[in-house]
Design a protein around this nucleic acid. Structure first.
Length: 950
RNA sequence: GCUGCUGUAGCUCAGGGGUAGAGCGCCUCCUUGGUAAGGAUGAGGUCAUGGGUUCAAAUCCCAUCAGCAGCUCCA
């Protein structure tokens, strides 16, 4: 009895592949190359999750398939190994993050090998390797050394930055400061989440509702000097570059929304000094100056500059709002308002960006006491401060047009500010009357009213005309804005890449303001050894705790203090795809010829959760490297596929009220705090789990078996430790084998879909593999022996057709990454051939090559038993023969008025008229026609006949 | 609120203007005391709903409903 035993077969073949370097990347790239990349994992302490192997299996199939077709394949794997969990573990236990990280990497490696992926393990890397982050630091140096030339839309060396004469006149220090203000990597004061109680700075994800996730202590937003990357300079290029990428449209849209390009205008509102009407003199002077000098780059302190996408609604601007952090706020606030404004700003500082921009919050704000003059009509309008205006977008100030902007309208209602409609909605608009009365808001386009000489013009016309007129007066100019912000690139953490930056200090140890990069030949800057990893209680990075022999550096006779921030986790993942190509290069981040040979990545597979940040950051770095001549392709990832999430097993749940009575899901709603309550009584309800026996299908959903009026919830949930529905790949491999796990993950459904796990589905594909085994091996025999049905004769016509249909389907589906359908076809093949008395060897062998990318261990084993000494992974992919696909005679349906009434047998190349005749000759057809008349005959060769009768 | 995706067998999913499919599950029968068995049969579908286009719609178009996911004060 020799049964299929994956636990014995799989480790043996994994060892064989390792030993023979079966999947080594070819040194020389052949005619066609394919770079197949997985998003590398963060090696968490929990090990692989069944979600990981989904994408990895897909890319593995693509890689094995491509190799079989003679392509040169690069298919590497690595680890995104810096990150918070290891550091938290270190704080708790004192164990160095490096130790835990290595342990996790080892475990991940074991699991990945256990699944039989054909990675080139000689190229494995971790972002925490010193030889890797040496080049991460080096790339930071490139960013530091680059400025963005907006005219050329290109990053250029800082040495080529034109220095304005007035700067040059001030000397070296001024020139250096000017350069610093243009570098792609620059220092700025950014807000961090400082938790005084914990004595540490927190990452955004560690802050929940303005409190620390750990302990629930208040978190304050305080400014800290930090590194920023000027990704906004690349906004336009990042947006345009999307066009040519073979990415899911959803992801492209997410990125383009994230970049958020909008066009509009910037408009200056003159700040009124005294009471209304007092400003005629200075205001006239201001206007006259503007008319001659034009619109200045820097608005100065005389006016408040706003950005608007609707300059056509200027006549409807009834007040203005500045962000709590607006730089002019101290000028704007009148003494009698100061206390109130200060209190408001203090309160706002405790809110995270997230909170301030969250949902349908009621609008808050405070009057500053100042007024500005509306340039359209000279009206005096009040200036408020409110946190619904963000300091970081546009100019940090808006003109509020409550009649035509929802947010402004809400604010105006809350604070009783006037609403003046200036756009007449289309006549058939439901709320037109309310809108015209200032009782409702209308944000779309229409015809101008209450807008002086512009009345009657369309929104587009007013926009153009009014902007032009204000531009002529030097009060406005067209402007483009992006939602995208510069990338806050430093973290106050230990477990990250140190910056290769030195700050000069004087003999007293005080910073002089001069900075320099660590010279390339002194990279990498490694992490210092710390006695412990506990926070030191100041809003500074943990590296500041390091000893002076790390912290203080002498170079060229000057003393420097090292930068103590570290880079964010994103840094290492921004360029790892380049390093795989040349992982051991100690002279450069990548060899230029190898870069040309392998880039760009042909297929990149990973989760949609990285749709925006990782992919945008990578593209940004890549474009900088491209501009600086280090890479030759403008985009790193040609084709991108997102695998869907794998959910836990489907669960049935119901709700019970406090008395323990079941409540139908129809009668449950969420209250304002998100708790589930009974719709009618408002009583809280509790979720209870149900077994399969307790429910029964009814219509669209499920109901309680004991009471059909109670609808229950039937759905799968995200796998989570707390829910206890996590499936562990180790146990699946132990119980079913790696090939079954691989096959099941692919058979669950389309790669991109979200799908629930079902353990009996794994059993299903396992029995398919058992069937394949028995199709070839004589299982009842004690000695391993081929089945007697496997013979050396040729296929009969039907077998040949089934074989070639299968070759075609699997080939085409592999290309299209439609793995589930390819598997279904291979199941059909197996069903057909196991029913055959004889199974020609040629068919079995071709089939095994088709199945090998999916279930490589088993196919290697069967291939060997069929008498081959060479790995099946090295066999060429079979080709299908069109001639074998055609049938001598096929069944054609005959429809009467579009309904199938009979079937006739015909040659596949019968002509339409022959088909019509054959159909009419059929007794069943005649019967169906009865005494009606055939008025039309439609015959589609090879498909069907339709007779239209009356 | 906005955006996107999805509604096909009890479940998970293919297909896609012209014959309704796979795996799992289920019924019946057969084989088998190494068996998380195997084999053979069969049942089960108004292709979410309502319109439209067409000789013909599950498929294309429009609307509606339901589910899921993501985003959301960006002026």
């Amino acid at each position: 009895m020799v049964r299929y035993n994956p636990n014995e077969i799989e480790p043996r073949w994994q060892a064989y592949w390792d030993e023979h370097h079966t999947f080594a990347t070819p040194e020389k790239v052949g005619e066609k190359k394919r770079y197949v990349l997985d998003m590398f994992p963060y090696p968490s302490g929990d090990g692989l999750h069944v979600g990981h192997p989904e994408g990895y299996t897909a890319t593995d199939i693509v890689s094995r398939f491509a190799r079989a077709r003679g392509e040169s394949v690069l298919h590497p794997m690595g680890f995104d190994a810096f990150g918070l969990p290891a550091e938290e573990h270190a704080i708790k236990t004192g164990e160095h993050p490096r130790v835990q990280t290595q342990r996790n990497i080892d475990n991940f490696t074991r699991q990945l090998k256990m699944l039989g992926f054909s990675y080139d393990w000689d190229r494995v890397l971790a972002t925490t390797d010193e030889e890797y982050f040496r080049w991460t630091q080096w790339i930071f140096g490139v960013l530091y050394d680059t400025w963005f030339d907006h005219d050329q839309q290109k990053g250029r060396p800082i040495s080529e930055l034109p220095i304005p004469a007035e700067v040059a006149a001030e000397g070296e220090l001024a020139i250096e400061q000017y350069r610093d203000s243009k570098r792609l990597a620059y220092l700025d004061d950014a807000l961090v989440n400082w938790c005084p109680k914990l004595g540490t700075v927190l990452a955004n994800e560690e802050v929940v509702d303005g409190k620390s996730e750990v302990g629930g202590h208040p978190v304050k937003r305080i400014p800290l000097r930090q590194w920023m990357l000027r990704i906004t300079d690349y906004a336009e290029r990042l947006l345009e570059g999307l066009d040519d990428l073979d990415w899911p449209t959803g992801i492209k849209k997410l990125q383009s929304d994230w970049i958020g390009r909008s066009t509009g205008g910037e408009v200056d509102f003159y700040l009124q000094r005294g009471a209304a009407g007092d400003d005629t003199g200075p205001f006239v002077a201001f206007k006259r100056a503007r008319e001659t000098e034009g619109f200045p780059t820097d608005p100065g302190k005389d006016c408040l500059r706003v950005y608007t996408t609707r300059p056509d609604t200027l006549f409807g601007a009834t007040y203005m709002v500045v962000a709590p952090e607006h730089p002019l706020i101290d000028v704007l606030v009148k003494p009698e308002q100061k206390d109130e404004v200060d209190a408001y700003r203090e309160k706002a500082s405790f809110k995270s960006d997230r909170e301030r921009t969250d949902g349908d919050r009621a609008k808050t704000g405070v009057f500053t006491g100042s007024h500005a003059i509306n340039p359209a009509d000279g009206r005096s309008i009040p200036i408020w401060v409110a946190d619904y205006v963000l300091a970081g977008y546009g100019t940090g100030a808006i003109m509020a047009v409550p009649a035509h902007d929802e947010r402004d309208f809400e604010f105006a209602v809350a604070f009783d500010l006037p609403v003046i409609p200036v756009v007449d909605p289309p006549a058939d608009h439901k709320q037109r009357v309310e809108i015209l009365a200032g009782k409702a808001c209308f944000a779309a386009e229409g015809v101008a009213i209450n807008s002086g000489e512009y009345d009657g013009k369309t929104t587009a016309e007013v926009k153009a005309a009014l902007t032009a007129e204000l531009a002529r007066q030097g009060l406005a100019c067209e402007a483009v804005n992006y939602k995208l912000r510069d990338w806050l690139f430093s973290r106050q953490r230990f477990w990250g890449e140190p910056f290769p930056v030195l700050h000069e200090i004087d003999s007293e140890g005080n910073a002089t303001g001069v900075r320099r990069l660590v010279p390339d030949d002194q990279l990498p800057v490694t992490l210092p050894e710390l006695a412990d990893f506990k926070p030191h209680g100041r809003p500074e990075p943990p590296l500041a705790k390091a000893d002076d022999d790390w912290l203080i550096v002498e170079l060229d006779g000057k003393r420097y203090r090292r930068e103590t921030n570290t880079m964010p986790q994103w840094a290492g993942s921004c360029w790892y795809y380049l390093r795989y190509i040349d992982p051991k290069n100690s002279d450069a981040l990548i060899d230029p010829q190898k870069e040309k040979d392998w880039m760009p990545v042909d297929l990149y597979v990973g989760g949609a959760e990285h749709a925006v940040l990782h992919l945008l950051y990578s593209r940004f770095w890549h474009k900088v490297l491209f501009d600086r001549g280090h890479v030759t392709c403008p985009e790193p990832f040609g084709k991108l596929v997102n695998q869907g999430m794998i959910l836990g097993e489907v669960e049935f749940t119901s709700f019970v009220d406090p008395s323990g009575k079941h409540v139908s899901t129809k009668d449950v709603k969420k209250d304002s705090e998100g708790n589930r309550v009974h719709k009618a009584t408002g009583e809280p309800v509790e979720i209870v789990a149900l077994t399969e026996e307790q429910v029964v299908k009814k219509g669209e959903g499920f109901v309680l078996a004991s009471d059909a009026s109670i609808k229950v919830v039937s759905r799968a949930f995200k796998m989570s430790k707390s829910r206890g529905n996590v499936v562990n790949p180790d146990s699946v491999v132990r119980d079913y084998g790696a090939d079954s796990l691989r096959l099941y993950e692919m058979f669950m459904g389309p790669l991109e879909a979200t799908k629930p796990w079902a353990m009996n589905g794994v059993g299903g594909v396992r029995s398919f593999l058992d069937r394949v085994w028995r199709m070839i091996i004589d299982e009842p025999e004690d000695e391993l022996k081929l089945s007697d049905a496997v013979v050396d004769t040729a296929c009969d016509e039907e077998q040949l057709r089934v074989l070639h249909q299968t070759i075609r389907k699997v080939t085409e589906d592999n290309e299209a990454m439609s793995f589930n359908t390819a598997i279904a076809k291979m199941m059909e093949f197996t069903n057909h051939f196991t029913r055959c008395e004889t199974r020609p060897r040629e068919a079995m062998e071709s089939f095994l090559i088709l199945l090998a990318p999916y279930a490589p261990h088993m196919c290697e084993e069967l291939w060997k038993h069929l008498g081959h000494n060479e790995s099946i992974s090295l066999q060429p992919w079979p080709e299908w023969d069109e001639a074998a696909l055609v049938q001598a005679s096929i069944e054609i349906p005959v429809q009467i008025n579009g309904k199938v009434k009979a079937k006739i047998s015909l040659s596949p190349d019968a002509k339409p008229n022959e088909m019509g005749e054959a159909a009419l000759a059929d007794a069943a057809v005649q019967n169906a026609i009865g005494d009606k008349k055939v008025v039309k005959t439609i015959a589609v060769p090879g498909r069907m006949v339709n007779l239209v009768v009356k």
